[in-house]
Amino acid sequence: MIKVKNLHKSFGRLEVLKGINIHIKEQEVVVVIGASGSGKSTFLRCLNKLEDITSGEIIIDGISLNSDANVNLIRREVGMVFQRFNLFPHMTALENVTLAPQIVRKASKKEALEIGLELMNKVGLADKINEYPRRLSGGQQQRVAIARALAMKPKVMLFDEPTSALDPEMVGEVLAVMRDLAREGMTMVVVTHEMGFAREVGDRLVFIDDGVVAEEGDPVEVFNNPKNPRTQAFLSKIL
C-alpha cells in the first residue's frame, strides 16, 4: 500500500529525514514513536504531500508521489488527523464532514449527507451534528475530525499525535474510534505515545531517531526487549 524508499527531507540546511525506508501493507497499523523533533510529523506530512520531499520515493497505492503526480488525487486517498483537530470553525460538525465529498469527490448533497450522518453515528456523535466546533469538547472535535477524513473514503489514514492535545479523560474515546477503524481493516500510520494503543492495536512499531528508522518490529517485542540502545533509552523515559 505504501512504499517509502530512501526518503530525505531538508528544511534549508536542516536535514530532518535522512533516508527512511518502510513498506506498509494493506490493513496494517503502524505506530511511529520517537523523541520530539526526530521528524515524525515531517514523515507523515511527506506521505500526503503537505511537504515536498527532497529526494527518495514514495509510492501510495501504485501512485508515485514524486513531483508531477497529481497532488489532490493522492490527498483524497490519504486521510489525515491532526494533533490540534483543525476543524473548520465556521461550519457545523456535519458540514465539516460533508464539504469535501461534495466539492472534491463531486458527490451530490444527498449522498454527502448520507455518508456524513453515517460517519457521525460511527464516531458516536449523532446527537452533535449541528453543533459548531467551539461548542464541542476536545475529544468530540477530534472524533469529528476523524469522521471528516473518513468521509473522503481514503485508503490510508495518518494520525499525528491525535490524543496529545486532549485532557486525559478524553483520550479513551478517540482511541476507541481508532481501534474500531483498525479492526475494520483500515491501513493506518499513527504517531502516538499511547503505548497501550500501540501494544494492543499496532501491527508494527517504528522508532524514528534522528531522521532514520532506528528500530522496528512487533510492538510487544520491541517494548519488551528493544535491541537498539537508543530505543532502550527512549522507552525507559516514556514507559
Binding site: 500526503n48 503537505l50 489532490n72 488525487l73 490527498r75 483524497r76 490519504v78 486521510g79 489525515m80 491532526f82 490540534r84 483543525n86 476543524l87 473548520f88 464539504l99 469535501a100 466539492i103 472534491v104 469527490r105 475530525a145 471528516r148 477524513a149 473522503m152
Partner: peptide, 17 residues
C-alpha cells in the same frame, strides 16, 4: 491558523477551493 489550510488541502481541496 495555517492548520486550516493544511486540513483543507489534506482533504484534497485545491488551493482555490
Amino acid at each position: 491558523d495555517p492548520g486550516q489550510m493544511e486540513a483543507a488541502r489534506s482533504l484534497g481541496m485545491t488551493q482555490y477551493q
